[in-house]
Amino acid sequence: MSLVDELVPSRYAVQVGDVDVMVISDGVLPITASTLATNVPPADLSAWLKDMYLPPEVTDWPLNVAVVRSGDKTILVDSGLGTEFPGFPRAGQLAARLDAAGVDAASVTDVVLTHLHMDHIGGLLVDGLRGRLRTDLRVHVAAAEAEFWEAPDFSRTVMPAPIPEVLRSTAARFLDVYRGRLHTFESDVEVAPGVVVRRTGGHTPGHSIVRVESGDDALTFAGDAVFQPGFENPSWQNGFEHDPEESTRVRLALLKELAATGEQLVATHLPFPSLCHVAEAGNAYRFVPSVWDY
């Protein structure tokens, strides 16, 4: 069966005013469930996993990227895992799924990277995609992010043993390959009409989110600022967060903002297509899935 005819869809398009946004699944990768909440008793996490009908030891982590078309720009937001990690055979689908969605890699004018973890940059290192990108491609990343990965600090993360070194080596290779195409920014940058990238920090020092606004509509791609447990339990710390306390502050501020504005949210590791609204629920929040338009 071709990707065009796949039974489970891997792309979902939404209109934000005059801006086209397409969420594309890069697949899923298995993750040790304990990394979802490293600062709470295991029994609390086990109860949450059970309530969500998720397995107790290893759970699948969705990988969402986005293609945004605004004006004469076609912007790829993150690039998924890539294909060089044999332990994650169901991830790294971006190149094929761009083709299936009718998105020509050569049409991409800009790439925005929320941060330089391997599941956000690996797709750009795949020969089947890298060789098709235009020579004048602009890759936008926060200056603090590029600087951090020159000598990354994992002292406050709680990751499975092999992961930090793989993150380090993948980021180093990415910077070596794409350094000449990097366009760094300090706090925020508008990459196309209505498409603004804003550094939040927290998850990594240069972690950034992308806000799309046009007319009366708005949507935020939050990268790794919000994980699945983070609505009901925004103070739960994820093992991949390089500054857990700042990550919590960023998450709470973002959820509060989105609950107030009512705009849609997309995040990398929420269930595909991850489009949702945020609602207040006492001292926490609720994930409210957007109704699919079809």
Rank of each mutant, 00 (worst) to 15 (best):
G122W: 04
H183Y: 08
L3K: 07
T135V: 12
W292P: 03
P56K: 01
P152L: 09
G87L: 10
V196N: 04
D60N: 08
Q264L: 14
G180W: 00
L113T: 06
G282V: 02
V291A: 13
G202E: 01
D217R: 02
S187I: 07
G27M: 09
Q237D: 01
V21W: 12
D18R: 14
L3P: 00
T261N: 05
A151E: 15
L49K: 10
V16D: 02
H207R: 02
Y12M: 04
A171E: 07
D18H: 12
L219V: 04
L98C: 08
H120W: 02
L167V: 15
A47E: 12
L7W: 13
L258N: 04
I163K: 08
A279K: 00
W149S: 08
N233A: 00
K50A: 15
G194E: 03
Q93E: 14
R173D: 11
S247L: 03
V226N: 01
K50P: 00
G180D: 11
N238W: 03
A161Q: 12
V108T: 08
H207W: 03
V21S: 04
K256T: 09
G282Q: 05
G202N: 03
G282S: 07
V14M: 12
A279H: 05
V250I: 14
A253D: 15
R211G: 12
T114Y: 01
V177K: 12
H115R: 04
A146T: 15
R11D: 14
V291R: 12
T109A: 05
L113V: 11
R286E: 03
Y294L: 07
P162N: 15
L94M: 10
L124D: 07
V166F: 15
G27F: 08
V158M: 12
A100D: 10
Y53A: 12
L3F: 13
A106K: 08
A100E: 10
A171G: 13
G262F: 09
E241I: 02
R156E: 15
T268I: 01
H140E: 06
